[in-house]
Nucleic acid binder design. Structure first.
Lengths: 201, 201
DNA sequence: CAAGACGAGTGACAGATGTCATGAAGGTGC
DNA sequence: GCACCTTCATGACATCTGTCACTCGTCTTG
C-alpha cells in the first residue's frame, strides 16, 4: 500500500486528483493540503511515502516544500505535478531532491504509473522536458536583476523601481540593461517574458 | 442519468475531472475533449445534456464553444470551470449562453452539485465572483486597441507593432496612448496587465 | 599592501515612448 | 451640398529607456 499526500491549491483539482488516486487499489491518500506550509505541518501525522505536489502555491510552493522535506530528513519522496514546462523549475525541483516532474498535460494514467516507478526507486521526468533539460539553461540573473525585473513586470517605471529598492535610478537602469543583455532581449518587456518563461522569476 | 461532456486541455486534469464525475451514480461521462473544436465535433455523437468546459484552450476556448452551441441550436447547457476570476470572462461567458461559471478554487463536491442545479434550470455563479459582477466592468477597448496591446504585451516596440499591423508608427502610438488613458495606466506594461486581468485581452 | 573584483552611482547620448493639437480622406445624415 | 463623425496619419515636445564609459568605495585574495 503506497501512502500518498496530495498538495495543490486549487480545491477542485485537489479533490479530482485525490479521487483519481484513490481508485488505485494499491494507493491510499493519507492526506491533502492546499499549500506547502500546510503539507509540512501534516507530514508527521500522515506519514506519507510520497508527496504529490503542485509548484505555484501561496504560502509555500512545491519546490520549497521539497527542500524542507530534504532538510528535515523526511523519507517521503516528492513528485512535482505542474502546468509549467519551465526549465528553471525542473532544474530547481531536481536540485531540491524531487524524484519526479510531471506536466498536467500528460494523461492521467501516467500519474499512477509514475508514482509506482518512483516508489520503485526510479526517477521520472516528463517526456516533454527531456530535451529542455540539457543545454545551458542556468539562470544568468543575480538577485538584484531578478528583483528589478519582477518590479518592471508589473508596470513600474525605472524611477518607481529605484524608489522601491532605495537605489539611484541610474543604477536600476544599468541593472535592467544588464538583465536585458543576459537574456538577449530588446526591451524590459521581452526580458521579463523570457525570464518568466524559463522559470527564473 | 445526466449525460456529460468534459472539455479541458490539460490531459491529467481532464482525466481527473472525468473520473470524479463518473463516481456520481446519476452522472455518465459520454465524452471528453481537449479543445472547443474537438468538443463541437463530438456533440452529435455524444448527445450530452451538459458540457463542462475550461476557458483557455488552443483551437477554441470555452466561451466560443458556448457561442457555437448557442448558435447551432444545441440544447446542451454549458458550465464553465476555470482558474480565472476575471470579470470579462464571466460576462462574456454569460453573454455566450453559459448557465454556470465555477472557479477551480471551489471544492470538488461543488462541481457535482452545480451540475445538478444547472440541470434543474438554475444558473450557478461562483461565490467569489458575485461582487465582481456588478460595477461598470465593460471592456472600454476597441478592436485595434486590443490588438495593439496584445502585441505590446509580448515585447514588440511601437515600430514593430506598426509594421505588423500595416499602420504608421504614430497611429500605433496614439492607439496605445488611448488605451492607456481608458485603462488609467501609466505605461503600456500596466495597460496590458489591467486589460489581461479584467479578461479583456 | 597592491591588484582585482564587485556594488553602487554618474553623466551623456540616441532612440523609444507618451501626449496633444492638428489635418486629410472617407463615410453619414439631412 | 454641408455639417459632422470616424479613422488614419503627422509633427512637435517632454519624458522615459537603453547603452556606455567612467568614478568611487569596499571587500577579497594573493
Amino acid at each position: 500500500m503506497i501512502r500518498i499526500l496530495v498538495v495543490e491549491d486549487q480545491a477542485m483539482i485537489l479533490g479530482a486528483i485525490a479521487g483519481l488516486l484513490s481508485l488505485e487499489k494499491d494507493f491510499i491518500v493519507v492526506g491533502t493540503a492546499a499549500s506547502g506550509r500546510a503539507a509540512l505541518d501534516m507530514m508527521a501525522a500522515c506519514q506519507p511515502d510520497i508527496v504529490v505536489s503542485d509548484i505555484e502555491m501561496s504560502d509555500m510552493g512545491g519546490i520549497d516544500l521539497a527542500l524542507n522535506l530534504q532538510a528535515g530528513a523526511h523519507r517521503a519522496k516528492v513528485l512535482i505535478v505542474t502546468t509549467f514546462a519551465r526549465p528553471g523549475y525542473l532544474q530547481r525541483a531536481l536540485a531540491a531532491g524531487a524524484r519526479g516532474y510531471l506536466l498536467k498535460d500528460t494523461p492521467s494514467q501516467e500519474l499512477a504509473r509514475s508514482i509506482r516507478r518512483i516508489m520503485a526507486g526510479e526517477r521520472v521526468i516528463d517526456g516533454q522536458l527531456q530535451d529542455l533539460a540539457q543545454p545551458d539553461l542556468t539562470d544568468p540573473l543575480n538577485d538584484r536583476e531578478r528583483e528589478v525585473l519582477r518590479l518592471a513586470e508589473v508596470g513600474h517605471s525605472t524611477k518607481s523601481i529605484a524608489r522601491l529598492m532605495n537605489r539611484a535610478p541610474g543604477t536600476v537602469r544599468n541593472e535592467l540593461s544588464e538583465a536585458m543583455q543576459k537574456l538577449n532581449a530588446a526591451n524590459r518587456i521581452e526580458a521579463c517574458r523570457t525570464a518568466r518563461q524559463m522559470g527564473w522569476l
